[in-house]
Design a protein around this nucleic acid. Structure first.
Lengths: 138, 138
DNA sequence: GACAAGTACATGAGTTGTCAAGTATTGTGG
DNA sequence: CCACAATACTTGACAACTCATGTACTTGTC
């Protein structure tokens, strides 16, 4: 017998898998993580973050960020820059090309998520979900 | 600027990553996917499913199921059985040991999810989420 | 009843994440 | 001011998934 808590964990996992699959299928040449990274960078002033901060925000590890950023830098959507005051640290910054690719992706994602959820999610659900995300600090 | 739809996709992904990380840390010697597989098998009459059905329910591919089931069968939590009428197909069935391990896992997962969500999720959130899962057919 | 098409599953190769360990740099207490 | 802890990142080894493909079997069609 499932408790409410377990049902929530399983349900969230399932919705995530479902949405992620659909979102990835429309992303223009980048993966879901790439999309999230670009979005996170674009959302902060200066458009740049240290890898370690990126990792914390995205529930990734530092090495995960290192590996994800590498190909993004190679195709010019982000670039690495040295930290002014700490030679250990560095920055990952979104480029103009990255912002353009992100804009494109945002449109596609909005559309596909809308289509996916349209028939099942109510206005009340949306408000509850968005409120929950806000309280969780997202 | 994020639309509601995009915010939902990102928020769900974030909650999933958060919950999954905590759940995995308490599971007794099995991974999150293993837990979900055992739970799925235990929830159907007969306690068995064809790999392809398991894949559909869990948003996995057939090969993902093949690979996940292998180690579970090796430690005796599930067993494979031939299909009576179709020699192409087979069954994955949960064993008694599997059910016992699942019981144990369910307790742990309930506790850790409760602790993780207690401070941030409201009664209204719970009802909204559970209602949403139900409408999505879970 | 033979053969094309479809279904169920397995396997090889690639991707993307983790963890553990290593390097370089910075901060700090005696 | 210097040894030592902490921080930021990278790298190698591994795990878990996907996609593309292969094999075995079944089904529909003529």
């Amino acid at each position: 017998m499932l408790t409410e808590n377990v049902a929530i964990a399983l349900g969230v996992a399932r919705i995530d898998a479902w949405l992620r699959k659909r979102v990835e299928s429309v992303l223009p040449g980048i993966g879901f993580t790439d999309f999230v990274i670009l979005n996170e960078l674009a959302s902060v002033v200066g458009g740049r973050l240290r890898p370690v901060d990126l990792a914390n925000r995205l529930q990734l590890t530092a090495s995960g960020v290192t590996r994800a950023v590498l190909p993004l830098a190679k195709i010019g959507l982000v670039e690495r820059a040295a930290h002014e005051r700490d030679a250990r640290a560095s920055y990952v910054a979104i480029t103009q090309a990255g912002r353009e690719r992100l804009e494109e992706a945002l449109d596609d994602v909005d559309r596909v998520v809308g289509e996916t959820l349209a028939s099942t999610i109510t206005r009340t659900d949306r408000i509850a979900l968005l409120g929950l995300f806000e309280r969780l600090g997202y």
